[in-house]
Design a protein around this nucleic acid. Structure first.
Lengths: 342, 342
DNA sequence: CTATAGTTATGAACCGTTTCCAAATGGACA
DNA sequence: TGTCCATTTGGAAACGGTTCATAACTATAG
């Protein structure tokens, strides 16, 4: 089996290389039967155009770069997986890179991707306040952690949080606390804002309604600590429901409740955020706000490829979240006072 | 800033393009001072060779493909992250692909990577029994889930399991059960074998020592169910220690113990396998066998790149695991009989 | 001093496509 | 019949590097 090039195809089909090239690229100006003949030969020879030769001339690499802070964060892992699938749908491949949440490494990765001449870059910027310099002429879009000076696409964090807290309120909860994310994180702040939105508009009943939140990192252990803190108060002041800003926090919070002997969901409702796979595997299965990751990834990819308008800078595309009601939430028990009155 | 090519560098340095090329590729036959001068010009101009032009002629892409079944499995996520880092150390980039544990998709991904002319492929094959056809001439190495007909690199699963069970035995445990992985999975079987190795060589004391294991998928919920099963027996027959074949199983098992009111580690020791990040974040922090993921990834990459001998087919390179003693394990309480005799 | 070998540098050919311009063909129309 | 477009095809130039045969120069040996 000798190596086959476009020339072999052309010769065997009795046409010029240019014609074969046009067939390859679905160029309209080629006769139907010629096109068919060439395609037949291509199939027969099992010919595959060399992507390097192709990219060199055409300046299109069919490659998308994706840079994320840390793949061991299940949320980002899911994002990468969705992005790869979306890219594949547009017959692109994905070059993956990790920034380890380090602005210097991040800049380096970006430069590498530019050197690779990728067709676009998806980036979840690292947390340190910094500006990323997009290699100019190269479409770049931020995901999840939005930056003010770059186009972005993300979940509607504020709206999602509202849905969660609204749901808890409708269930009858009034003492709803919030484990907020780390200060300075854009998604964290949006989610907290959503929580506050609902809490401040809840009709004041007999019991005073006041927001109660505590900042914590997004991880499991921070969630546990925050949960322990919130639950360490007298029975009649203790929250009956907790909205956590990440599933990992929520899972940690579940553990904290468990340690205190508080039954879930009878004694405490917990709602998470993100919808990572783990949230549906634990016991009790976690009620959570699931981000439409597939949609987000698809939007990012098609924006980069120009098959969809790029979101305006400063006006990111937001995607609606959905509430997944599972086992960690329920209506609150009767108030202790009510019980006593019986 | 006009686009700069190798010609501009050559001209500015007063040498021929061929010379610049040789400097670029660290070819020995170029004088030290010429080399220095050229390098200076390269730096000055910020020149970056076009990877496509380069690859087209040289047939080297500096690209590594990696195909894994599912990125939402934290173990694979860590693998991918390590592989990317290792590849970067050899100035290669990584094209990531997910097979969704589907043999058909897997074959397609492999073909795509071959088309991309990557320099090598790392693959964690999907579980269904099938043979993967490596595009010939393209180095391919399996990781973790080894295949009989391809070179592979993995953790020493059997040895790692031995370390875990040995540790539990030395702690004084005798009724040590095992949550084995799914039947048919190579790593699962090796770990089970390691467990059996130790159990069958333990000196028989007063109490009869007999292996006890149950198969379960590697995930959290399966581990919980398996744990519940193993712990649902009379107090004096119940295992005092459980070795799980994955951290996810172990974490599920922790939950099962918790549901039964069994304190950890006082009433039950649990040891996991893998060393995923989550294992160190939960409460209690999980004692586990950690796989040297960075080493494994590095070995895979450098084998692919020919900087290290490719493992022989049928004789995979195995890497020593390490025991991370944390909070989920301790010596067993006195036997109930002993307590009664007091 | 010449022959021989060894080291560096040169520059043209080449890699496998895409792209562009020119040429061929065919039909409509005057 | 001759002109003028529109459509389709051919063929060569480009893309930006690497590689290789060759030349130029040095050093060593005879």
């Amino acid at each position: 089996m000798t190596k086959r090039g476009i020339k072999d195809v052309a010769q065997r089909a009795g046409v010029a290389v240019g014609t074969v090239s046009r067939v390859l690229n679905e160029h309209p100006s080629v006769n139907a039967d010629v096109r068919a003949r060439v395609k037949a030969v291509i199939a027969e020879l099992g010919y595959r155009p060399d992507p390097f030769a192709r990219s060199m001339r055409s300046k299109v690499s069919r490659l998308i770069g994706i840079v994320i802070p840390d793949l061991t964060n299940p949320f980002f892992a899911e994002l990468v997986q969705c992005a790869e699938r979306a890219a594949a749908d547009h017959s692109h491949n994905v070059i993956f890179m990790s920034s380890f949440d380090d602005a210097v490494k991040e800049a380096d990765r970006l430069a590498q991707l530019a050197g690779r001449k990728v067709d676009g870059i998806i980036i979840v910027p690292c947390n340190s306040p910094h500006s990323i310099k997009a290699p100019k002429g190269l479409p770049l879009i931020t995901v999840d952690r939005l930056l003010a000076d770059h186009p972005g696409v993300a979940a509607d964090n504020r709206g999602g949080a509202r849905i969660a807290v609204d749901y808890l309120a409708k269930l009858g909860h009034r003492r709803i606390a919030c484990i907020a994310g780390p200060a300075g994180s854009r998604p964290a702040e949006d989610r907290l804002q959503g929580y506050l939105d609902v809490m401040t508009t809840l009709p004041q009943g007999r019991a005073k309604i006041e927001p109660l939140f505590v900042n914590a990192a997004f991880d499991y252990e921070s969630g546990r600590a925050a949960g322990a803190f919130l639950l360490a108060r007298p029975r009649d002041e203790r929250p009956t429901a907790i909205f956590a800003s990440s599933d990992q926090q929520a899972i940690g919070c579940l553990r904290a409740a468990n340690d205190l002997g508080i039954p879930i969901p009878a004694g405490l409702s917990v709602v998470g955020f993100d919808g990572i796979p783990l949230s549906n595997l634990i016991t009790p299965r976690l009620t959570t706000i699931v981000q439409p990751m597939a949609q987000i990834a698809e939007a990012a990819i098609s924006s980069l490829l120009g098959r969809r308008d790029m979101p305006e800078v400063g006006k990111p595309d937001l995607f609606q979240c959905e509430l997944a009601i599972r086992e960690s939430s329920a209506a609150p028990l009767l108030e202790p006072t009510a019980v006593a009155a019986r």
